[in-house]
Amino acid sequence: MSPKHRTAWERVQIARNPARPKTLDYVARLLQPWVELHGDRAHGDDAALVAGIGSFRGRSVVVLGHQRGGDTKENLARNFGMPRPEAYRKAGRIMEMAGKFALPLVCFIDTPGADPGIHSEERGQAFAIAANLCTLANLPVPVVATVIGEGGSGGALAIGAGDRILMLENSVYSVASPEASAAILWRDSAKAPEAAAAMKITAADLVSFGIADGVIPEPADGAHVEPAAAIDAVGERISAALDELDAQYRTPAGLYDVPRLLEARVEKYRGIGAWREEMPPVAEPVVVEASGD
């Protein structure tokens, strides 16, 4: 099957390939130096999400990314890339630091979803994700998020609601995993391939919806076959996105024009949706009032 005509389900398989480059592979090749930072300063450190600061092509940046394991042992240590609340709280404090030092935030999205365990609920998984969305909405620096593998629902969005959303050609981004959607809507998780197609989760779909801002082409057989080339292509596009955002919002003093940046973010997300508005039925009395009430 040629790359252009892969089905959604084939792309899901590529997105989940254990050999596919992960956040720390991108960090190792793109950031020099790189310093990883740990812990949420409240409860613990969750290896399912990595955070740190580094220099990216001459620019100091803050990085957040989901981290899956390359084998079973590492996957157990990293909870299969499913962050717990302490991971999101770590991300939240690192986001604040990016804002404090006017450093752009670069995020790598690669998770099946937020951890659905008992302890995660006890520690407020939903509250932790919501807090990050709120922090991102107020963050006074540009945010560029790239989906490098699987973008699994709210657990992905919690570090993904940026000013630019880029997607690797074979990455997917979905409201629920194809298996979960199949279980809910087909009442049969074996129908995941059908669900993957119906839910329209590919990079090309999301660009056509105006949700993602760009597709980054992968080597013909996928990023796992030629990781260095894939990582460099991602680096190129992140760098271009940061340049573009700097050109628009960076002030001569080296800071950011925060009100304009935040308004643009409001407008970006405001534009996402599909609805129509009917006029009220003629029989309905409508009083047009002057503004100001």
Partner: peptide, 25 residues
């Protein structure tokens, strides 16, 4: 999020939170 609208629904999480953040500002 409403499954039947796929990623449009997921993005409403960001859309609404971003709007409420503006209210807070």
């Amino acid at each position: 999020a409403r499954q039947q609208e796929g990623m449009f629904s997921l993005m409403q999480m960001a859309k609404t939170t971003t709007a409420f953040a503006r209210l807070g500002r």
